[in-house]
Design a binder for these strands. Structure first.
Lengths: 336, 336
DNA sequence: TAAGATAGTGCAATCGCTTGCACATAGAAT
DNA sequence: ATTCTATGTGCAAGCGATTGCACTATCTTA
């Protein structure tokens, strides 16, 4: 802040000590006598001394803060993940800095690089649906920035990852539609790049196979921008309807709500006839009409696990070479 | 970051110049010859030089970043505000740091103080529903930290503020209920401390008066925690029902969705009989059942306006002494 | 030709904090 | 009495960038 606060120098002057003694006393180092420590601590308390984190970051070349990149915080899934991240980070005395990519590769790169230059100690990132080129991340990673991916993870990047069991989530949702008698089940999904897209597609296919239902590629629609543009979504829905699906399995939060919205808007008469099962972490699903079956991801927990892994990397004495991919189970909440 | 990047010193060494010359060249100062500037810029470009913002912050005692405090980002209203803030901030080369108070005074204070110590140049804040004591903010403000309040603003704090026209929004919503024939209109609202609570209550009362409907205090229920605890909300709803309201005007996003949820859960048979009008910025209202009339706040715009005011304060040459309270109109979206 | 003006660059201090090393004092061991 | 070991403190450098001031050429001008 541009306004004056008491510094270590002020304390030193007031107490007739050197700044080094004060610094060490505040950090509770063994070299300093108990007496001096008490003196310093008491005075620091009195003048409400706060160490300047900027100065400390500059000196120590770290900041006790971790960066987060999500596509958008307005998405319930991501805001829940963030809450999970915060719950662990604050506990371990880290602060978090949140950035949104808005599903744009350019914005994502810009934000990551800004975070890196602000000395974040580590990065938690869910890739944007546009992102294909990971070189900028590899570069930072090679220079020593710990990175943990969650939700949308790359295949060919050796580090910790935390994901939901997308295959099983998709399988369960699709199976549920089948078991409620649906046979023409469309699949509305995200950009093909994304890991989650592939895994969920695989789960969908597996369920069809199990029940001997033919997989029809024309029933699968990809949305490049993950439903950020409603036009894209309406177009996809419009293209799907001629095939007369009696069920749709949808592969992301935004797409799920967006699809129902599009259905209601463009074809209100069929909206209630098509059974919908989709990934969503909205806590408002109970209010939706038509109601739907939802696949909920353990968002909060994902945030927690990812943060624990990240902090373990940050605080590791020697370079980490063994990496884990944690897979957390989803929950199927059946339509009432 | 703990990993090496090229610094101004490296450039200086490589080019046989001094760090001061390099610094000045990069900042395009008049003292440096065009030739040298070109040289430096070209080399900086080549080694992908990024000024270290930490070092700059330390030296300049500012950070080109602004802090944001909201109760929670999962709330659509706030995430839209944040998007508005970002749209202006990025444009003017500021970065934003988001923090959540989760409606807790303690958390709010902690976050604000941390932000201040990280040299934010200004603060945008919507108060938590618990907050009564503004001394810690006054203190920072007095020391020179520019602050702009939005949405939940204090009365006795001289600075810029940006709010929605809560009175009119509430009036319109209540009037709408009256005009659709409701006569026993309850009011479910937030903590009494909040400015928005008072203003919306006033609007509600004014509408009742206009249509000669008696104001009954027992029909007004306050939720201290703004609906963060579902028990609190269910309790409030339960207390309201014996009065047989035929309409409810609800004064916040979370309460609105929470109330419908509570109604559906505890009294599904009456849920559809009670007309609901409430403040909410959810972009999913169209999906809700029972449907409702909503008062939408111009969230994005609020963020923009607040940020413009804040940046004008930050960049003002002399202390600002004339303050504005901008009031933006809400929009009534009638139930279909 | 000497003195002054101008342009271009470098020196060194500074922001607040951390830390390796040197130093001082005092008691223990020889 | 001398050396050694603790113990407690201080000096000063350094993190990367900015900037007032001083300095050196080069060019004017009287």
């Amino acid at each position: 802040m541009r306004f004056e606060t008491s510094t270590i120098k002020d304390i030193a002057k007031a107490l007739g000590l050197s700044t080094s003694t004060v610094s060490r006393a505040l950090r509770d180092r063994y070299e300093i006598s108990e007496e001096t420590k008490k003196l310093v601590l008491a005075y620091a308390e009195k003048v409400n001394y706060r160490a300047n984190p900027i100065a400390r970051s500059l000196k120590e070349r770290r900041s006790y803060s971790i960066g987060i990149i999500v596509s958008e915080i307005a998405n319930n899934f991501f805001s829940q993940v963030i809450n999970g991240i915060e719950s662990i980070a604050y506990d371990k005395d880290y602060h978090v800095i949140i950035s949104q990519s808005h599903e744009s590769y350019k914005q994502e790169k810009l934000n990551v690089e800004h975070l890196a230059s602000r000395s974040i100690d580590g990065l938690l990132i869910a890739l944007s649906s546009e992102t294909q080129d990971l070189d900028y991340l590899r570069h930072l990673y090679a220079k020593g920035l710990p990175i943990v991916f969650f939700d949308r993870v790359p295949e060919d990047f050796e580090t910790h990852k935390v994901i939901a069991n997308n295959f099983k989530g998709a399988f369960d949702a699709t199976e549920h539609l089948i078991l409620s008698g649906k046979r023409t089940i469309a699949h509305l999904t995200n950009s093909e790049n994304l890991s989650i897209t592939k895994e969920r597609l695989a789960g969908y296919k597996a369920a069809l196979i199990k029940y001997h239902i033919e997989f029809r590629p024309e029933l699968v629609k990809y949305c490049q921008h993950g439903g950020m543009h409603s036009a894209e979504l309406e177009e996809a829905v419009k293209e799907l309807l001629p095939f007369m699906p009696d069920g749709i399995f949808i592969s992301s939060d935004r797409l799920t709500t967006g699809c129902i919205m599009a259905l209601k808007k463009t074809n209100p008469e069929v909206a209630h006839k098509i059974a919908i099962a989709g990934f969503t972490n909205s806590n408002l699903v109970e209010l939706f009409s038509p109601s739907l079956t939802s696949v909920k991801q353990p968002a909060f927990e994902m945030g927690q696990v990812a943060t624990e892994l990240l902090i373990s990397m940050i605080e590791a004495k020697r370079p980490v070479t063994e990496f884990e991919t944690k897979v957390l189970d989803t929950e199927l909440v059946k339509k009432r």
